[in-house]
Amino acid sequence: NITNLCPFDEVFNATRFASVYAWNRKRISNCVADYSVLYNLAPFFTFKCYGVSPTKLNDLCFTNVYADSFVIRGDEVRQIAPGQTGNIADYNYKLPDDFTGCVIAWNSNKLDSKVSGNYNYLYRLFRKSNLKPFERDISTEIYQAGNKPCNGVAGFNCYFPLRSYSFRPTYGVGHQPYRVVVLSFELLHAPATVCGPKKST
C-alpha cells in the first residue's frame, strides 16, 4: 500500500533546468501520483496529453512515469509533440509517434532571462542524422558540413554543433524561455507502482 506522493514538485520547481540537447530525465515510481497538483503548480502555457485524457490521469496506474525536463524558446514548444519536425524535434528531443503522456510548458522569462542575455541554455544546431525517439546526444564533436574532414577544428564548413540561446527579458514571447516537462507513461507487463490517489488504497 503506497502512500508517499510522487515528487513532481522537485521536477517542476527545480531551480535550474537542463539545456534541451542534454535534457534531464527523472524516473518516478512507487508513489501516489496526484496530477491535479500539477494544474495548480504554475499558470501553464501548455498542458497537452496524448493517448490519455488529462482529467482521467488520477484514475490510472502505470509501471513507471518518466519526467523529462529542459528549456526551449516559446515558438519551439509546438515541436514537443508526436510527429513534429524542426531543429528541436530533429536534433535535441524527439517524441515517438505513439507517445503516451503529457507535455507541460510554461513561460520562464522571469527566471531564465537576463538583461545582458542568459547564454547558459544550449541547443544542438547541427547533426548528421535525426534523433530516434527519446535519444539523447550530448556530443560536442565538430560538425563537418563540407567534404573536407574537420579534424576537430572549427572553421570553414566545420561547425561547433551547439548554439546558445541568449534569453533577454525584452524579447518577444516566441523568443522567451519556456520550461518544459514531458511526462511519459510506461505500461509494462509488470506491477503498477505509480497510481492516482483513488487507485492507491
Rank of each mutant, 00 (worst) to 15 (best):
residue 166 S to R: 09
residue 109 N to C: 15
residue 147 N to P: 14
residue 41 L to R: 00
residue 110 K to Y: 11
residue 130 N to L: 11
residue 192 A to N: 01
residue 7 P to V: 01
residue 201 T to L: 02
residue 198 K to Y: 03
residue 170 T to F: 15
residue 29 S to F: 09
residue 114 K to R: 14
residue 9 D to A: 04
residue 175 H to N: 01
residue 39 Y to W: 04
residue 132 K to L: 10
residue 105 A to F: 13
residue 142 I to T: 14
residue 119 Y to N: 05
residue 35 Y to M: 06
residue 2 I to A: 04
residue 174 G to W: 02
residue 27 R to N: 07
residue 116 S to L: 15
residue 69 S to T: 07
residue 57 L to F: 12
residue 5 L to I: 11
residue 132 K to M: 02
residue 111 L to D: 09
residue 63 T to Q: 13
residue 174 G to E: 02
residue 29 S to T: 02
residue 44 F to G: 08
residue 2 I to Q: 07
residue 152 G to A: 13
residue 54 P to A: 02
residue 201 T to D: 01
residue 95 L to I: 05
residue 153 V to R: 00
residue 100 T to K: 03
residue 104 I to F: 07
residue 7 P to S: 02
residue 200 S to D: 04
residue 157 N to D: 06
residue 187 L to H: 13
residue 113 S to A: 09
residue 187 L to N: 00
residue 196 G to C: 10
residue 30 N to P: 14
residue 8 F to W: 05
residue 166 S to G: 00
residue 151 N to E: 10
residue 191 P to R: 07
residue 147 N to C: 08
residue 130 N to G: 11
residue 55 T to Q: 10
residue 57 L to I: 05
residue 132 K to N: 06
residue 201 T to V: 02
residue 45 F to H: 00
residue 140 T to M: 11
residue 190 A to W: 12
residue 4 N to S: 05
residue 118 N to S: 15
residue 151 N to G: 04
residue 110 K to A: 08
residue 104 I to Y: 00
residue 45 F to Q: 02
residue 118 N to R: 15
residue 140 T to Q: 00
residue 54 P to Q: 05
residue 87 N to P: 02
residue 149 P to V: 08
residue 64 N to T: 00
residue 37 V to G: 02
residue 63 T to N: 07
residue 157 N to G: 03
residue 55 T to S: 10
residue 140 T to V: 04
residue 42 A to G: 00
residue 64 N to R: 01
residue 147 N to I: 07
residue 43 P to S: 07
residue 140 T to G: 11
residue 18 A to H: 06
residue 122 L to Q: 01
residue 39 Y to M: 05
residue 188 L to P: 01
residue 122 L to G: 06
residue 198 K to V: 06
residue 192 A to K: 02
residue 5 L to C: 13
residue 7 P to Q: 06
residue 186 E to H: 05
residue 115 V to R: 15
residue 98 D to N: 07
residue 192 A to F: 01
residue 185 F to Y: 02
residue 149 P to D: 03
residue 59 D to E: 03
residue 59 D to G: 06
residue 132 K to R: 07
residue 125 L to G: 00
residue 65 V to I: 13
residue 197 P to I: 02
residue 187 L to Y: 01
residue 41 L to A: 05
residue 173 V to Q: 07
residue 130 N to Y: 04
residue 2 I to K: 08
residue 129 S to N: 09
residue 62 F to L: 11
residue 156 F to Y: 01
residue 29 S to R: 02
residue 28 I to Y: 04
residue 147 N to T: 06
residue 32 V to L: 05
residue 196 G to E: 07
residue 10 E to Q: 07
residue 162 L to I: 12
residue 130 N to S: 12
residue 194 V to L: 02
residue 169 P to N: 15
residue 16 R to S: 01
residue 141 E to R: 12
residue 85 T to I: 08
residue 155 G to E: 13
residue 190 A to F: 12
residue 197 P to D: 03
residue 83 G to S: 14
residue 151 N to S: 08
residue 14 A to Q: 08
residue 100 T to H: 05
residue 198 K to R: 05
residue 119 Y to S: 08
residue 131 L to V: 09
residue 114 K to D: 15
residue 173 V to Y: 09
residue 138 I to C: 09
residue 201 T to Q: 11
residue 63 T to M: 13
residue 118 N to T: 15
residue 114 K to F: 15
residue 46 T to W: 10
residue 27 R to E: 04
residue 22 A to M: 02
residue 164 S to C: 14
residue 130 N to Q: 05
residue 160 F to M: 08
residue 55 T to M: 06
residue 122 L to E: 01
residue 60 L to Y: 02
residue 193 T to A: 03
residue 39 Y to T: 07
residue 164 S to N: 13
residue 111 L to H: 09
residue 140 T to N: 00
residue 121 Y to H: 15
residue 16 R to L: 10
residue 44 F to R: 01
residue 42 A to L: 06
residue 100 T to Q: 12
residue 196 G to I: 07
residue 13 N to F: 10
residue 130 N to P: 07
residue 33 A to C: 11
residue 9 D to I: 08
residue 194 V to N: 05
residue 129 S to V: 03
residue 83 G to R: 06
residue 130 N to K: 07
residue 194 V to T: 03
residue 154 A to W: 14
residue 188 L to C: 00
residue 152 G to N: 04
residue 173 V to I: 01
residue 45 F to D: 01
residue 145 A to G: 09
residue 166 S to Y: 14
residue 44 F to P: 03
residue 143 Y to M: 14
residue 125 L to H: 07
residue 120 N to Y: 07
residue 122 L to R: 06
